[in-house]
Design a protein around this nucleic acid. Sequence first.
DNA 1: ACGATGATGAAC
DNA 2: TTCATCATCGTA
Length: 171
Amino acid sequence: MHRPLSATFFDRSSVAVARDLLGKFLVRRYRGRTAAFMITEAEAYEGPRDKASHAYRGRTERNAVMFGGAGRWYVYFIYGMYWMLNVVAGPHGYPAAVLIRGVEGAAGPGRLTRKMKIGRALNGRTASRSSGLWIEDRGVKVPRSRVARTPRVGVAYAGEWAKKPYRFVMK
DNA sequence: ACGATGATGAAC
DNA sequence: TTCATCATCGTA
């Protein structure tokens, strides 16, 4: 059996976490059924200085979970239709997170949450079996040659931060 | 290229 | 209380 990744995996720079999430499995237990999909795309949102991050303008009701400890889900609603799934990274008090943008069989962050029945109920919960959503290492190794690094999607407003190569995608 | 669709946060 | 904005997606 595979064990869920623990908080120590997420208690690092969000960029390192985003890179290492490629090849891991996002596992959902919902209404008695369990489904697992390999993560193929992730983006880092790194700290209070990152202009593309929700935490850039400080703590608010929405982004509060980003300021907590690593390994919790940060789920928010956007464009009146979609839920975005993030996992909090880095030390307590430092607002960083990784947006899980794609899994095998669902490209795009909005599609993935719809497919896996992810919504507000998971916000602030721990990435563990108890919450019904967690991440496992199933032994898939993703070599550098299979990883593309690009700027993040949909953050053109973020000036210099829009250019940073914080998006990781499996080729 | 653009509209759907509504929560969020900052301004007023 | 109003209002612009938004870490997107489907249709054209």
